[in-house]
């Protein structure tokens, strides 16, 4: 079955809404189970949407953005598995597999945005220096709007205009380029940490940085809670020593004053 222009537009609008939700991780309507159902609704075949959505959701439940890695895009997986099942009458599982290239395409686009949006931070720093709150809001809106437009555009192109051409495009993308985006994503936080250290790191704090680093290197654990606990221990240690020094001084001062009074 063919996708009509109205359906293409409907899918694009839906993609903009769930795409923004994916970006913000707000209501989780970007998960395939919801996206496919909505796609089915727009195409007039809710049952198909439910079945492809269920299958795609199960396949994507293990692919999470936790820990900073970007998984194949769940929105495009949800839309395209249903659209492919609808247009080509393929089985839901096969449709899900055929939807994967589109899912990768959107993943690469998002990775590219993650890297390039770093350039907005210069303006944000400036805004902070000038206490210009409106500019911060504007940057947030701009980033989100770019993502929204990309979702609308990609879904419209993939569903209505040129499904085959888009697929070919993904297949000819060289691996080094897409891998390069991932590599950049792995290294770019270094610049962020360096900015953080620029303001926080005085020579006296270097030992604590090293302690945290070494523990994290050798501790095979899923989150940083143990390091935070070590941090709390060190902080309490410093706190007690400094506080004693202060109160010690105060006691000494009083003693000295009393002595002076005595004389």
């Amino acid at each position: 079955m063919e996708i009509t222009l109205m359906q293409g537009i409907g899918l694009a609008i839906m993609a903009i809404i769930v795409g923004v939700d994916f970006w913000l991780e707000g209501f989780f309507i970007f998960r395939p189970i919801i996206v496919s159902t909505l796609t089915g609704l727009i195409l007039g075949d809710v049952q198909l949407g439910l079945i492809t959505g269920g299958i795609t959701e199960l396949a994507f439940a293990g692919l999470t953005p936790a820990g900073g890695t970007q998984p194949p895009n769940p929105v495009l997986a949800g839309v395209m598995s249903t659209v492919i099942a609808y247009t080509t009458m393929t089985e839901a599982t096969a449709a899900m597999a055929l939807a994967l290239p589109f899912s990768f395409l959107m993943q690469y686009i998002i990775l590219f945005c993650y890297s390039t949006f770093s350039f907005f931070m210069k303006g944000a720093d400036q805004a902070a220096a000038e206490a210009d709150t409106a500019k911060i809001v504007k940057i947030n809106i701009t980033c989100t709007a770019i993502i929204a437009l990309l979702y609308g555009l990609v879904v419209f192109l993939c569903t209505f205009v040129a499904q085959d051409a888009m697929k070919t495009f993904v297949e000819v993308l060289p691996a080094w380029l897409t891998h390069g985006f991932e590599v950049a994503g792995g290294i770019l936080p270094a610049v962020g940490f360096a900015m953080l250290l620029k303001v926080m790191l005085k020579a006296e704090f270097i030992p604590y940085l090293l302690i945290g680093f070494v523990i994290a290197c050798f501790l095979d654990f899923s989150n940083l809670l143990p390091i935070a606990v070590v941090g709390v221990a060190l902080a309490l240690f410093v706190y007690n020593i400094e506080k004693n020094m202060k109160t010690g001084k105060a006691v000494q001062n009083i003693a000295e004053e009393e002595e002076e009074d005595g004389i």
């Binding site: 900073g68 994290a216 940083l224 070590v230 941090g231 410093v238």
Partner: peptide
């Protein structure tokens, strides 16, 4: 004193962050 202690805590965690976020 608390500010200093908080910075100690912060720097310890940043050390851990570098190890786990920069790859």
């Amino acid at each position: 004193v608390l500010s200093k202690a908080a910075t100690v805590l912060g720097c310890t965690v940043i050390g851990g962050l570098i190890a786990s976020y920069v790859s």
